[in-house]
């Protein structure tokens, strides 16, 4: 009887030993069934400790477990992160910040389910082991970062719809004190002035018939001066002078009084017309000369020629001299004058 019992016990022992020997192999086989992803990331859009953030989840499944059909993707955030309620875990597939070559995670759930530090999204099958699949969580109400710390461990996992693990990996989360960089720049106040040519030709000889005019010389002003700009003009002679024997000066007629002077037929006179372009630029009233016989008086002291009342990307002021002579004006080919134009940003 005792022998029989001993035999039974030893059989039980033998079976138990066999089980003990074989069990680890079964356990090992179970562990091999889940593997790490080939590539994976859980990226926070903001890294500042305490900041509410959106983010991106990407994964490339291993070839080993490709035959299994994904039904869920689960993210476990480290302790310290504040996970929002399920309604805040809306997803999106905007590709703007994804790694190159990534495509949208198939059939990712529109809104995940949050429980404690774990957020679960239902998912379609990841069919390629060479493809990176991504999706975003798009609400800043979904998660708030933990205080600044390095290498806080969380997990990313795919499971079948029956909750069997397919791929799983640990993810190191790091947050920092500040994720913004303050940038300051200086825009210096500048004033640019360009005068393309030094000389200006009367296009026709000066006669007592019609008023002659020069081609015109155009100054360009570019400035960020808040109060605009002013251009002044001064004539060297207040008239057209000639060095030829017997020649007399063709004097600039009128006075600088805000009203243009008209060059009447059979009289001698020399005036300046200023025309501007630019929404806030205007010639001085003296030089605003709508008629071809009109112009402003030139002076040997500086007079305002034109002004702009605002910053400009390209105001222009064109200076055109006009002259007319009486029938008795002595002939000469060298009647000339020198104008000096100065421009400055307004105070």
């Amino acid at each position: 009887m005792l022998k029989e019992w001993r035999k039974k016990i030893s059989i039980v022992n033998l079976i138990a030993m066999l089980i003990a020997i074989v069990a680890p192999f079964f356990a090992a086989n179970n562990a091999l069934a889940a593997s790490n992803f080939t590539q994976s990331m859980v990226r926070l859009d903001r890294m500042q400790g305490g900041a509410a953030t959106t983010g991106t989840i990407c994964a490339k499944p291993t070839a080993l477990n490709l035959a299994q059909t994904e039904g869920k993707v689960i993210v476990t955030f480290p302790a310290g992160f504040t996970v929002g309620v399920s309604a805040n875990w809306a997803t999106g597939t905007s590709t703007t910040t994804w790694p190159a070559g990534a495509i949208a995670w198939p059939t990712i759930q529109a809104t995940g389910t949050a429980a404690s530090q774990i957020v679960t999204f239902t998912s379609g099958d990841l069919t390629s082991s060479s493809q990176l699949y991504c999706f975003n969580w798009i609400s800043t109400s979904s998660i708030t970062n933990a205080s600044a710390a390095s290498n806080m461990i969380g997990y990313l996992e795919t499971q079948t719809s029956g909750s069997a693990t397919i791929d799983k990996t640990s993810i190191a989360f790091s947050t920092i004190t500040s994720d913004t960089i303050s940038v300051t720049g200086i825009v210096e106040p500048t004033f640019s002035f360009a005068l393309p040519t030094n000389t200006d030709n009367f296009t026709t000889p000066l006669t007592n018939g019609t008023t002659s005019a020069t081609t015109g010389s155009t100054a360009t002003i570019i400035t960020n001066a808040r109060n605009g700009w002013t251009a002044w003009v001064k004539s060297a002679n207040a008239g057209l002078v000639s060095a030829s024997p017997g020649a007399t000066t063709i004097t600039s007629t009128g006075t600088y009084d805000g009203t243009p002077t008209t060059l009447a037929p059979a009289t001698t006179g020399y005036v300046l017309k200023v025309a501007t372009t630019g929404a806030a630029a205007n010639p001085a009233a003296e030089y605003l000369s709508p008629s071809v016989d009109q112009g402003g008086t030139l002076s040997t002291t500086y007079q305002i020629a034109a002004a702009g009342t605002a910053a400009t990307a390209s105001d222009t002021a064109t200076f055109t001299e006009r002259a007319r002579v009486s029938a008795t004006q002595p002939p000469a080919t060298d009647y000339t004058d020198t104008l000096t134009v100065i421009a400055a940003g307004q105070f």
Binding site: F191, S192, F193, L195, T197, N198, T199, D200, N201, F202, P205, L206, T214, S217, A219, L240, F319, E321, T333, Y335, T336, D337, T338, L339, T340, V341, I342, A343, A344
Partner: peptide, 9 residues
Amino acid sequence: RQTVLNGGT
């Protein structure tokens, strides 16, 4: 028949 323009800023 030419006039001269000098510029300054």
